[in-house]
Amino acid sequence: MIRVPLPLGLGSFVALVLLADSLAAQPRQQPARPASPAPVRLEIAMEPGLDLGDAHEWARAYGDRGIDVRLRAMKATDDARIENAGNEQRPSWVVIGILTRRNRLQVPGRTFTIAQGADAKEWLDQLAANGPDAIVGERLAFGLTPAQLIALHDDLATPVEFPTIGIASRTLVERLSETIATPLAFDPAAASALDDAVICEDELQGLTVGTALAAAVRPGGLVLTVRRDEAGSVSLAIVESRRAEEFWPIGWPIEKPPGAVAPVLSDKIKVDIKAFRLGQAIEAIRAKCGLAMLIDRNGLAEQGIELDEVRVSYTHPDAPYGAILSKLLGQTEPPLKYEIRMDERETPFLWIAPR
């Protein structure tokens, strides 16, 4: 099987790690949204010296787009802002826009020309449907608002409830996507990379869909990324790694000591391994300690390492699982290592990759 090298994407990964910290600290409850779009009024505050004829042209042009527009003189305290003239349960949004002498309308986070009435209407419709955070809120990874990112994280925390070893990766991605609410699509260039010859070789059952999707597409040189369109809708995409500036990682770094996250690795057993295939030894340890183990098969292929061609040995009367695994992984050339990661439900697993 041909495996495509993947970039580390460290900057994106660090950003996502920082995001994981914030997700862990934030409540999972979604902000309340109105059952139907809230009313929105655009108040255009005219800068002193602006030609009144120009201002009325704005009112006509934007009014023809179905926008509720009011014109008034600018006050000394005016700035571009959004106010709620209703209440939290039944909002009524008032957008204060500043019409400058340069004939530009400044609203929070955007500037429109008179010819951009359609864009302004779409922006105001987003406000009506989803509130201010959807249009001017803080943006985190993938350009999402905090609420969108939390919702996506929770969706991708859906557990994988079926065995995955031996399933064609393309079929696996399709089955996983059916278990979540967020739409998923392949980029055209990525679709051909996961042909029927690319088979899932790791057991992902019991982990989360986010981690499973990211792991399932990696052997094809692909990554899972997130998109937010102009209307604010969030979707997932499978793309070639070189085309992704940000991508969803295969698990998250642990914050607690390893012994607190995966205490089973400290359990001791008698071990007598003599000339076992490394793949066979890894599977035996996985079966005994119960931790999922995902293997960076792209990284191994780059180094020319085939697990079933490497013979390993280790004998000890009372060794911890973690030490046994480290000793065995260190017998490849170059050596391998394991890293404890967590999926979106904070379930620990081991990521095995070249050092």
Score class of each variant (00 low, 15 high):
Trp351Ser: 05
Leu184His: 01
Val198Met: 10
Val209Gln: 10
Glu43Lys: 05
Ser192Lys: 10
Ile165His: 08
Asp229Glu: 03
Tyr338Ala: 07
Leu224Thr: 08
Thr111Asp: 14
Gln126His: 07
Trp58His: 05
Arg170Tyr: 06
Gly66Asp: 14
Pro31Met: 06
Glu161Gln: 12
Ala301Pro: 02
Asp267Thr: 14
Leu336Asn: 01
Ala157Arg: 05
Ala214Met: 02
Thr182Ser: 10
Ala189Lys: 02
Asp187Gln: 11
Arg110Ser: 13
Thr100Ile: 05
Leu71Gln: 00
Gly53Val: 13
Leu152His: 00
Thr332Glu: 13
Ala193Met: 12
His153Asn: 11
Pro39Val: 03
Trp252Gly: 06
Asn84Met: 07
Leu18Gly: 15
Ile165Ala: 09
Arg65Asp: 11
Leu23Ser: 06
Leu156Lys: 02
Cys289Lys: 02
Pro27Gly: 13
Ala244Trp: 00
Glu306Ile: 08
Ile150Thr: 15
Lys268Cys: 14
Phe13Thr: 08
Arg243Met: 00
Ala55Gln: 07
Pro249Thr: 00
Ala319His: 07
Thr179Met: 09
Glu346Leu: 03
Leu19Pro: 00
Asp272Phe: 03
Glu57Ile: 00
Asp79Met: 09
Asn87Gln: 09
Ser192Met: 06
Ala45Leu: 11
Ser92Asn: 13
Asp155His: 07
Thr100Trp: 04
Ser326Val: 01
Leu329Ile: 02
Val136Trp: 07
Ile98Val: 13
Leu222His: 00
Pro354His: 09
Val94Gln: 14
Glu333Val: 13
Ser326His: 14
Val310Met: 05
Gly86Asp: 07
Asn130Gln: 12
Ala216Leu: 04
Glu339Ile: 14
Ser36Arg: 09
Phe247Arg: 01
Glu302Leu: 07
Val310Asp: 13
Ala55Phe: 05
Val239Met: 04
Ser36Ile: 03
Ser36Val: 11
Ala134Asp: 11
Pro253Asp: 05
Arg311Asp: 13
Pro163Leu: 10
Ala292Ser: 15
Val310Gln: 11
Ser313Arg: 08
Trp58Asp: 07
Arg311Tyr: 12
Leu50Asp: 03
Ala292Asn: 15
Leu325Thr: 03
Leu23Glu: 08
Phe112Glu: 12
Ala215Phe: 04
Pro7Asn: 09
Val69Gly: 04
Pro5Ala: 12
Arg218His: 04
Leu265Gln: 03
Gln30Cys: 06
Arg3Pro: 02
Arg33Pro: 03
Leu10Met: 09
Thr111Ser: 15
Phe142Leu: 04
Gly86Leu: 09
Met46Val: 15
Ser326Ile: 01
Phe349His: 08
Glu255Gly: 09
Ser241Arg: 03
Leu207Thr: 15
Glu178Ile: 05
Arg72Gln: 14
Ile295Phe: 02
Thr113Asn: 08
Asp119Met: 02
Arg101Lys: 12
Arg242Asn: 02
Leu213Arg: 00
Leu105Phe: 10
